[in-house]
Design a protein around this nucleic acid. Sequence first.
DNA 1: GAAATAGTGTCTCTCAGACAGTATTTC
DNA 2: GAAATACTGTCTGAGAGACACTATTTC
Lengths: 238, 238
Amino acid sequence: MDPQADYPPFAVTVDLVVLTVRADQLSVLLVRRAIPPHRGAWALPGGFVHADEKLADAAARELAEETGLTGPVGHLEQLATYGDPGRDPRGRVVTVAHLALLPDLPTPVAGTDADSAEWQPVDRVRTDRLAFDHARILADGVERARAKLEYTPLATAFCPPEFTVAQLRTVYETVWGTRLDPRNFHRKVTGTPGFVTAVGRATEGDRGRPAQLFRRGLATLLYPPMLRPTTPHGRDLR
Amino acid sequence: MDPQADYPPFAVTVDLVVLTVRADQLSVLLVRRAIPPHRGAWALPGGFVHADEKLADAAARELAEETGLTGPVGHLEQLATYGDPGRDPRGRVVTVAHLALLPDLPTPVAGTDADSAEWQPVDRVRTDRLAFDHARILADGVERARAKLEYTPLATAFCPPEFTVAQLRTVYETVWGTRLDPRNFHRKVTGTPGFVTAVGRATEGDRGRPAQLFRRGLATLLYPPMLRPTTPHGRDLR
DNA sequence: GAAATAGTGTCTCTCAGACAGTATTTC
DNA sequence: GAAATACTGTCTGAGAGACACTATTTC
């Protein structure tokens, strides 16, 4: 493809909004950039798409490089694409942002372009200091995650393979920043077809009555959806 | 940006899924390609992003070129990005697809790269003959539109500035391919805060009692959402 | 036993769906 | 008047929210 007036050359990257729930905080994986531009600043993990690589594969590769994850753990989806001229001082760079939801993992590994990588609670991120337009991307990713918990079973992506209803409730409470009635939540989750399936075993050794263990179910959409309290979803007018 | 192993050059395009409701059919704007590749095949309108142009501006420019629209009519949003290697024989081309919803318009204008442009009912498009991966993009766009009618007031983007409840109902029925009870629909639309606001005038000259005219309201999300009948949203398991 | 957590049952209110009935126009 | 479309009212059933109550564990 010739770089001409109508066919200007672009670089294409993938950036990742990797979210997890740890210590009752919705947290995002950030790396400290070891190379310019924005050297020393915190940024979303990401990198250039290779010459013969699908976008989704590039995102999965970057995720594996940063977290060590290989298998089908958690959830990875395309978020949105950001390509304003000037968003990267190196030239015209379009980034296809992806959203990953993962269970709580060991401390992440620093990649090749990063000094260090760490989980930061999303409401404590200094968004005004993030590299590039990553503050915007992070905000969009968090909003997408919050919305998708309502009508998909993606909350289970934040959980280990087997989990209790209380663990799942903690995910909702943490991501949404709300409190949910444990009794109504239990009835809702177990009564929504395909959301979770009982393993048949229970936890042991905790305080209180042991809880049934569940795995994620087969549904890809929840009907009826989980409803977010106090902020009844779309009341953004007036 | 040097084209190297890690920084391979890409071309970036925008493609448009432009939908409208006309003659009780959900229809998409397609162009017949006048230049290779896929010369003579039907395709989504689109084109290369210019060197100093935002992605959204490129989409708006292409939309204006194809439809003649300039002002803030209808709705335009980013859909998703498609970038598999080999999706375009000219080289590595990533396309940022956008979704546009418009009221019924006069016959479209052919652009510079197209012999002709026309509205085709989406369920009569020969998807196996569309250029590139446009069948997939079209399917994703239609699905996005169907889903968004549920929880946003975007159905109004298919209507002229002033419309009746029956016109709005026809949009839902056409896009969803279902029948809705006119009485319950009326109660729901007028009772959902911010969905529509009454103009104060009524239609004249039709058969039957004149209908109140409405404009779109201020809400960006509908609460409670419109519910799609017979396919209760997420019952895709079992 | 007390404390803690898991899980069930019951009441009420809201709202979607069904559909009778009324209002206002054209023919 | 009949036919057509616009709109209102009423009933019923499903489900969300509130919360009393029972069950099973650790201490």
